[in-house]
Amino acid sequence: MTAWTLNDIERAIRSSWGVDTCAPEDLAHWRPDNPARGQCGVTAMVVHDLLGGELMMGEVHVDGVRTDLHWWNRFATGVEIDLTREQFGPDELVGPGRPVARPARPGRLQAQYELLRHRVVTELERGAAANRIRRPARVA
């Protein structure tokens, strides 16, 4: 198995987002200049697939009213990684997170999750193959 860095994974995820991997409730707000919009659930699950840890969930509030839920990752060291935090505007506040059990299936986001996971793994494998080609062979 190839050991990818968090930078490799982040780059592959960010290049794999699209309107077709966006959560249905966020489609009206997804834009190419804010590609992280609606990607948190599927992104957190793909990061979990690749790096393990815990899934975290917090409530999103606008003017004190809960408008959504937000997902990210926390690792055994306590470090939290949120690759989609920039999707929120200044009026959207994400509350404290709590660890949640990973659902057995992504449910309503199954198609978006599978598409994002496929794109990310393909991108990571493409990058690993390119690195093998660029590396000079060792002379014994």
Rank of each mutant, 00 (worst) to 15 (best):
L27D: 11
L27K: 12
L27N: 06
A28S: 11
A28D: 09
H29T: 10
W30A: 13
W30Q: 12
R31L: 11
P32D: 03
P32K: 01
D33N: 12
N34Y: 10
N34Q: 14
P35E: 09
A36P: 07
A36I: 07
R37A: 13
R37P: 04
R37Y: 03
Q39G: 04
Q39R: 05
Q39N: 07
C40E: 01
C40R: 11
G41T: 02
V42T: 12
V42D: 10
T43K: 02
T43G: 02
A44D: 01
A44W: 00
A44K: 05
V46Q: 01
V46C: 01
V46F: 00
H48Y: 11
H48P: 05
H48F: 09
H48L: 08
L50H: 03
G52Y: 08
G53N: 00
E54W: 10
E54A: 07
E54Y: 08
E54P: 00
L55G: 10
M56S: 03
M56E: 03
M57K: 14
G58V: 08
G58Y: 01
G58C: 02
E59I: 11
E59W: 06
E59T: 13
V60Q: 03
H61Y: 11
V62D: 12
V62S: 15
V62H: 14
V65F: 03
V65M: 03
R66D: 06
R66E: 08
R66T: 13
T67F: 07
T67S: 13
T67E: 14
D68P: 11
D68I: 11
D68M: 12
H70A: 00
H70T: 02
H70K: 02
W72G: 00
W72L: 02
W72P: 01
N73C: 04
N73Q: 08
N73V: 03
R74Q: 04
F75T: 00
A76F: 01
A76P: 07
T77W: 10
T77C: 15
T77Y: 07
T77M: 05
G78R: 04
G78F: 05
G78D: 01
V79N: 08
E80L: 08
E80N: 11
E80Y: 05
I81C: 05
I81A: 03
D82N: 10
T84N: 06
T84E: 07
T84P: 06
R85F: 13
R85E: 12
E86P: 10
F88P: 02
G89N: 06
G89F: 05
G89T: 12
P90A: 15
P90K: 15
P90M: 14
P90L: 15
